[in-house]
Design a binder for these strands. Structure first.
Lengths: 136, 136
DNA sequence: GATGATGTATAGCCTATGCTATATTTAAAT
DNA sequence: ATTTAAATATAGCATAGGCTATACATCATC
């Protein structure tokens, strides 16, 4: 492993982090729409455990990046791209939790840790997890 | 799972993130000291893949939080606490990589993903990983 | 249809991380 | 010993996420 490689790894981890919040919000908005028909900023804020203006700001970013749409004082909805991302994130989350459970992590802990881990699981690792789970 | 639980999970992931950079820098400084006898800011910056002032700022934070010491224009060293943290982080990294390899993740990818994943692996999950690896 | 409660947006602030440009110190070389 | 090169520090800026306080819309209720 050379220095450059290591720097690249950190850069990758930083990049993943910047995507993580987007993924969390998109998934949560997807959940709320599924449950309630729409996602209100107040509900998003409560579930994310942040203040309402923080959720508003996050929604602005989602809109700016093409994952969500909304009109002032109205609910938030996902674009096609946003809905697809939400589905990918949800599936990945399930797989990560299942993998953790499969190697002996208690359910409660698996859910907790998966929330942070999932954003750093690459496509290749995800595929490996799936193969491992099938092989069991 | 209630809303409060979910908000807590996100809060936990955010907290983990704030610790992640500290862990990365501390581990890297430990590596440099082991290899070169001291950790120079320029080396830290290069390996972390950031600009030199960014590394300087990070070192300031490490000092402020009691993990490192340094004098102006001189190398950076770890406190006892910093060295202990570095060792814990290094051990956890090894375990995470081993676990990924054990479930079929290719070596290269395992190293890449571990860099991000490791910061979100709790003590309990780490223990489960170790048990799983021993049982193989 | 006015009013009050609720929900959303905006303003302004803080901290953290990143950057570039530049000053300063140290160390090396002539 | 000076001068120059290299390393480090500092200044100043940007973005992102968090917060509180407050303004503004919407909606329900009377």
């Amino acid at each position: 492993m050379t220095d450059v490689d290591q720097a690249d790894r950190f850069a990758r981890a930083r990049e993943a982090q910047s995507v993580a919040l987007i993924e969390d919000y998109v998934e949560m908005i997807g959940d709320l729409i599924a449950e309630l028909g729409e996602a209100r900023v107040a509900d998003i804020a409560e579930r994310m455990g942040v203040a309402q203006p923080t959720a508003t700001k996050a929604v602005s970013r989602l809109k700016r990046e093409g994952f969500a749409t909304s009109r002032p004082y109205r609910g938030v909805f996902l674009t096609e791209e946003g809905a697809a991302l939400a589905e990918r994130v949800r599936a990945r989350h399930r797989t990560v939790v299942a993998l953790l459970r499969a190697v002996g992590v208690p359910e409660e802990v698996a859910e907790l840790d998966a929330e942070g881990i999932e954003h750093h699981v690459s496509e290749q690792t995800l595929k490996a997890f799936e193969r491992f789970l099938q092989g069991k």
